[in-house]
Amino acid sequence: MTLALKASSQRVQDFLDQHGVELKVKQMTESTRTAAEAADALGCQIGQIAKSLIFKNKATGTPVLLVASGANRVDTKKVEKATGIKLGRADADYVREHVGYVIGGVPPIAHSQALTTYLDPDLQNYSTVWAAAGTPNSMFELACDQLEKLTQGAWIEMAQ
């Protein structure tokens, strides 16, 4: 069952509409805060969940977005080797301040500022993936080529 969109999810829907893609945000009754919860709520494989993880660039203090398959844990050393960026943890206050969303609902798009973004190639094993849409119980489905285009992200190996 879907519900009316909350303000944070509407920001994501507005971004999608402004970019000319016919994708629809779903406000769910169930929690989609974790990849496992999202897969259960949507009836899809956990690997199809495109989880948006915010880290802090240790050198600049700016946010870095890693969009990983829900089946994977991120290896920050692989990311550093591929990008040259040393990643630090970003707490909930940092994420809200720099990205504009709460942890558990961070979408891969529609942030309060442009983010350096990297994408997990394991997501490409699926015809479509599901991403958070601004709240811990909203999601939207998209193809990986749409994910790449909308995020301007680069595909790099990041799974442990």
Rank of each mutant, 00 (worst) to 15 (best):
V79E: 04
S31L: 12
V21P: 02
V25I: 13
P63R: 06
Q146C: 05
K149D: 10
K26C: 09
S127D: 14
I49L: 06
V95H: 03
L66K: 06
Q160K: 12
V21T: 09
S9H: 03
T117Q: 04
L5T: 01
R73I: 05
P136A: 08
Y118Q: 05
A131I: 03
K51T: 13
V12A: 02
G100M: 02
T32Q: 08
T128K: 04
E22L: 11
R96T: 14
T83G: 15
L142F: 00
Y126N: 05
E157H: 13
I156A: 10
A71W: 11
D17R: 10
N137L: 04
A38V: 06
T32W: 13
P107C: 05
K58Q: 15
T32A: 11
Q152W: 03
S9D: 08
S138H: 05
L142C: 09
D75P: 09
G47Q: 08
G61C: 13
K78V: 10
A110P: 00
L150D: 01
I85Q: 07
K86P: 00
T83C: 15
A82P: 09
L142H: 01
S127N: 11
Y118D: 03
N72T: 08
P121W: 04
A7S: 12
D91F: 10
D93Q: 14
L42N: 00
L150M: 07
H111G: 06
Y94V: 05
R33E: 14
N125V: 00
A39I: 13
P108I: 04
A4P: 13
T151G: 10
L87K: 07
A59M: 14
A68G: 05
D17I: 09
T117G: 08
L23F: 10
K6N: 12
K51G: 04
S127Q: 13
M1Y: 12
L87D: 01
K24T: 12
P107W: 05
K77P: 00
A110T: 07
E37K: 11
H111W: 14
K56N: 06
Q124R: 14
M158D: 05
V99G: 02
L142A: 05
D122R: 08
D75V: 10
L119R: 01
K77F: 06
A82C: 14
Q13H: 11
A68M: 07
T29D: 11
Y126I: 02
A114E: 12
S8F: 05
D75R: 10
E141L: 06
R96H: 14
L42E: 05
L119M: 09
T116C: 03
A132T: 07
E80R: 15
Q113C: 10
I109F: 12
L147N: 01
I49T: 04
L23W: 06
I85V: 15
L150H: 00
V67H: 06
F15S: 02
E37Y: 07
G47Y: 03
D145N: 08
D91M: 06
V99N: 01
